[in-house]
Design a protein around this nucleic acid. Structure first.
Lengths: 204, 204
DNA sequence: TGTTTATCGATAAAAAATTATTTATTTGCA
DNA sequence: TGCAAATAAATAATTTTTTATCGATAAACA
């Protein structure tokens, strides 16, 4: 069960959301899932084998059990706290967005350099308070929503504050110590893929 | 040059942002880029070969040329218009966010079912006006920021309105005709990877 | 009870992506 | 001019990921 591949890990939340939305049947087979999601059935089975052992021939997987196993594996049940650096447009949205809670992520504070943005009632603090708060509340996840120019600086602050996992919305590479994991939310890449599709459509 | 791989396509914006930030030298080699971004140098060279032919032995690539080639390839120079469905927290942020313009994406209108959210001055319209507007302005890209329950419905509306590329922020699978491309912004997956990293850290 | 069928799980094959190696080219310099 | 160094480009090897195949198992049903 050790070392699950990144591609598998990315598909697990998709399975989970499918299972939650299609609550009618008690048992679900990999075949059904794969068809609904336009994937290969062996792939689904393999992915699920990595986190579950409740599959039964001819029957499939017990939906409820599978949901629980997925949620546990994905950490939706053990709540993690996170902080955001950069309370601009995107940062504010993420700070107020309640959708992450269902994934076990609680964004508990935002930080910014800009004094005018600080509003402690709304949990927005000056960046000078970052380290103290992270240490005190034992926070491991930091979200970067500043611009490209400030991203590395903020990243260093986060690392200094004891953060070990960074969710980076700035379209840039970050240098971090090897024990820190950086997850790039690569919106530029998504856009690139989209616009490529449009272009290809036009040329064919 | 035909058929560039998805993984390559995802790395191109990273190269571009690196090149733009490090403007000092006239020429850049794949070796330099790979080291700065912690990638394999052959991989960088291969990726760049797909979109450029300006690499010269002993010299590298002309930075400016490469930037232009990347921008052109990624479509940053031909502006595309897009609409958003779902003007909640995230939708509003994206609607107001100006950062996408640099990627050639102009979000020109938001749509919602909720009458109370409609504010035509702020370019937020009722969903009933979607099709007309898309057809009139020849819009190809739609962004979905509604919740899971409504996502497929909105998706169908977009397809009906002539959209051929969908950027889906709802954590769910969408069924579309084969000519429509869906790009899932898989935040749940990112979170899964992050929280897995935290978990692994704790267990080791 | 035996047969059929759907499905899992394991193994094998194929395809794709990454990394290593070799070759050729260009520049700088003795 | 000739040699050394840096690097792109081509090719080969390796690894990873995806897809296909096959055997085993459990349920349904005659």
């Amino acid at each position: 069960m050790r070392s699950i591949s990144k591609s598998t890990l990315q598909r697990l939340p998709i399975y989970l959301s499918f299972l939650k939305q299609h609550c009618d049947s008690e048992f679900v087979s990999a075949t059904v899932i794969s068809k609904a999601l336009s994937l290969n059935d062996v792939q689904v089975r393999k992915d699920l084998a990595a986190i579950s052992s409740s599959g039964r021939p001819k029957v499939g997987y017990c939906r409820c059990t599978l949901i629980l196993e997925l949620e546990n594996f994905l950490g939706y049940n053990d709540n993690e706290n996170a902080v955001i650096i950069g309370v601009g447009n995107l940062g504010t949205a993420l700070l107020n967005y309640e959708g992450f809670e269902q994934y076990g992520l609680q964004v508990i504070a935002g930080f910014d350099i800009d004094e005018s943005k600080i509003d402690e009632k709304r949990k927005i603090f000056h960046i000078s308070k970052l380290k103290d708060l992270c240490k005190r509340l034992n926070i491991h996840i930091g979200i970067i929503t500043v611009n490209v120019e400030q991203a590395q600086l903020c990243c260093d602050e986060l690392v200094d504050a004891g953060i070990t996992a960074i969710w980076n919305f700035a379209p840039t590479h970050l240098n971090v110590p090897s024990y820190v994991h950086v997850q790039r939310e690569n919106m530029a890449a998504s856009l690139a893929i989209l616009s490529r599709h449009i272009k290809d459509n036009k040329n064919n």
